[in-house]
Structures are given as C-alpha cells and as structure tokens.
Amino acid sequence: MTTTNTKGQRLGYIRVSTGKQDERLQHDALDKVGVLKRNRYTDHGVSGAKTSRPQLDAMLDDAEPGDIITVYKLDRLGRSTAHVAQLIEELATRGIHIHSVGDGLDSTTNTGKAMLQMLAIFAELERSFIRERTTAGLAAAKAQGRTGGRPKVLDTKRAAQAQSLRDAGHPVPDIAKALGVSIATVYRITKARVA
C-alpha cells in the first residue's frame, strides 16, 4: 500500500448530537492515531444534518495543505453521503487529507483515495436519485391539480389586511401578532410604505 508524503499536522474532529452522548470512544480513536488533544475540535449537541458547525468550521479554516483531518467515523462529518463527499472533495482540492479511523479510510494511501473516490460516485448517484424523485413527485402533483411548494400562511384577504395595516403605519411585530403569523411572514407578503 503506497502512502502519500504528508508534512502537515493531524487535526481531529469530534461531534456528538446530544448532551447525553459520550465522546470518549471518539477521543480514544484519535488517541490511537496520535492526534494531540490541542489539535481537536469538538461540537457538542450539534446535528450532523447541519452543514455549518462552529468547531468544524474553525477546523476547516485552520487546516493547511498537508494536514490530515482525522475522525472516528465519516458520519461525524455529516449525515448525508452527498455532504460528506462534497466536504472530502473540497479538502482534497486544498491538499488536505482525511482519515476515518473506524471506517478504515485514509486518503494518504492509494487504496484510501480509491475508496473516497467511490464514495463521491455514490454521493452523485444519491443526488441524481433525489432529483429524479423530486421531479417525479412534482409531475404527479401537477397531474392531480396540485402545485408544489409550501402552502400559503395567509389567504388573499388576510394578506391584503396585513398590507393595509402596514400602510397605516402599524409596527410589523404588532401586525404579525394580530394575524397569528411570524414577523418574517409579514415582511415577505407586504411592502413597505413609500414616503
């Protein structure tokens, strides 16, 4: 197994979704491969579904070409295959390697690179399936006379009422409270009065 020469440092990323989860297993895995405690970034109580996470973002900002980002498993980086593959691809273009201890993936090796390329292929396949399902679902809904998208929060009459209240100079928070909708909804469905 051929290994790529790396001159950087090992950075570790740990994520637990809830406060009840124990991160010890992840720390143990990073200990075994020599990730120093000062080089670890930990997100507590943050879902993997979120693409932006404070400590993940900080680590990605700090990472430099030649560094190896180490995780216990790839699912710590994100929930969807597509998001993880996209992140790995971005790291690769920056010259940053990825090592997933539990999955046995290490992009500093030729085998690891090949496995990560396969992951990218499966992620693209997953994206194409999602696009196909979305297109088919929209076509089926249209055939049944339904349109896609979120249902309107306010009917036309109540939207006009919101606009007239705003035109009369009532504060947006008061309008939202009176109509039982969010402030954002009032801003979205009304226009500011031109002076």
Score class of each variant (00 low, 15 high):
G95H: 03
R15N: 05
A195K: 13
K50N: 14
A143D: 12
E126C: 00
I130F: 00
E90W: 00
L125N: 01
L125R: 00
K50V: 02
L105G: 03
L91M: 13
T190W: 14
T3M: 08
R133W: 01
R188L: 05
E64G: 07
P65C: 02
F129N: 02
A178F: 07
D61P: 00
V84K: 03
P65K: 06
N110E: 14
I68W: 07
Y41M: 05
Q21I: 04
R53W: 04
A143P: 04
R133I: 01
G34Y: 09
I14L: 13
T109M: 05
V35K: 11
S80L: 01
K20Y: 06
I183K: 15
T42V: 15
I68M: 08
E124F: 00
G95V: 07
T134N: 01
K73F: 05
I88K: 01
D61E: 14
D103Y: 09
L125S: 02
A178R: 15
Y13E: 07
D106T: 07
L91K: 06
L77C: 02
D57I: 02
G12R: 12
K73N: 05
G48D: 06
D155M: 10
L11N: 04
A195G: 12
D62K: 13
D75Q: 06
N5Q: 14
T51I: 08
R15G: 06
G45W: 03
P65R: 05
V33G: 07
S100M: 08
K142P: 01
V16Y: 04
L105M: 11
A159W: 12
S107L: 06
G180S: 12
K191D: 15
A139L: 04
L87G: 02
G34Q: 10
K32G: 13
R53V: 04
N110L: 08
S17Q: 11
H170R: 15
L179P: 07
L138S: 02
E23I: 01
A176F: 09
A49F: 05
K152V: 14
H44D: 12
R53A: 03
T51S: 06
R79I: 04
K191V: 14
M115H: 08
R133M: 01
P171S: 08
K50G: 04
S17V: 07
Q21H: 07
I183F: 13
E90D: 11
F122C: 04
R158F: 10
A162I: 11
V46E: 10
L74H: 09
Q117C: 04
L74V: 11
L116E: 06
I68K: 06
Q161S: 11
E132F: 00
M118K: 02
V172F: 08
V46F: 12
Q9H: 13
A162W: 09
G19N: 13
A29N: 11
V84M: 02
A192W: 08
E124M: 00
V16A: 03
G8P: 11
P171I: 10
E126M: 02
Q26C: 04
P54V: 10
I14V: 13
I130P: 00
I189A: 09
A192D: 13
I14Q: 06
D43L: 04
